[in-house]
């Protein structure tokens, strides 16, 4: 790299001032030691080990799908926060706000990136699972991390599902109507599921359409104001929060279970 070799760059000079040293402890990693130190010193780079066997770096082995899933998650977080500035989760405003996001807000691409990113994340998470299966990486000692991964996969789809309702268009309410009626068919705790009538005492039914699993999900007896608000809160705070926790455990376990899998 001729650029780095031709004397000190401006950045390198900055790294030697007191401010530069305070921020970038390692400076530009040129020698072996610095390349190790930069991985150890940074909080984000510390996600990775210092060295890896060569196969673990090859794209044809990992497909990069796990890392990309995380990256798309971050993109979705950023675009999602930006969307929240303009979107109001009420039956009266929701649909109009979505149209305004396109027509009245500069850079009307935010919703597109968010929506297509959501699709992309489902795809990358699936392909990541597929790769992990094909390399047998769920085998001991990584069994538990596979379990965490399955939970993350389900959470990804739930995130996408709760986001589906928010535009409040025909596609949204009917997809959620069909989806939430399945919850109403849950055995024992759904009003139209098997066994609900077993929980009655005499003539008093405890599981009715206003006290079953579907109601808890929708906050009402049909997809309306309550459902929109509940899905909004779950989509923006509830599920991402749970997902973060599982992601932390997932990444931690990747390192603790011996890094990326490989032949022993």
């Amino acid at each position: 790299m001729p650029y780095f070799d031709s004397g000190e760059s401006l950045f390198e000079k900055f790294c030697k001032t007191q401010v530069g040293r305070a921020i970038f402890r390692t400076g530009i990693p040129r020698n072996q030691r610095q390349r190790m130190m930069i991985m150890l010193n940074g909080v984000f780079l510390h996600l990775h080990p210092v060295r890896l066997p060569k196969h673990a770096v090859k794209v044809k082995y990992t497909w990069c799908m796990g890392g990309l899933s995380f990256f798309v998650f971050l993109v979705l977080t950023v675009t999602g926060i930006l969307l929240m500035f303009y979107y109001r989760p009420t039956v009266e405003y929701a649909y109009g706000d979505i149209i305004d996001l396109k027509e009245q807000v500069p850079l009307g691409l935010m919703r597109e990136i968010h929506r297509w990113g959501a699709h992309l994340m489902v795809v990358t998470v699936w392909l990541h699972m597929f790769r992990v299966f094909m390399t047998g990486s769920y085998k001991p000692p990584r069994e538990f991390n596979w379990v965490i991964g399955v939970i993350l996969l389900v959470l990804t789809m739930l995130m996408s599902f709760t986001g589906y309702l928010l535009p409040w268009d025909q596609l949204a309410i009917w997809a959620i109507t069909v989806g939430s009626n399945m919850a109403g068919a849950t055995p024992l705790v759904g009003a139209s599921g098997p066994g609900a009538s077993l929980l009655a005492i005499g003539d008093v039914n405890f599981i009715t359409s206003s006290s079953d699993a579907r109601f808890a999900m929708l906050g009402g007896r049909f997809v309306g104001e309550g459902a929109l608000l509940r899905f909004y809160v779950l989509h923006c705070i509830g599920l991402p929060f749970v997902m973060m926790i599982f992601m932390i455990v997932h990444f931690w376990r990747v390192r603790k279970d011996g890094g990326i899998s490989g032949p022993t």
């Binding site: 390349r35 190790m36 930069i38 060295r51 890896l52 060569k54 196969h55 770096v57 090859k58």
Partner: peptide, 11 residues
Amino acid sequence: AEDAKEKILVW
């Protein structure tokens, strides 16, 4: 396994 014989730096 052939590839894994070589260790490389992450950075």
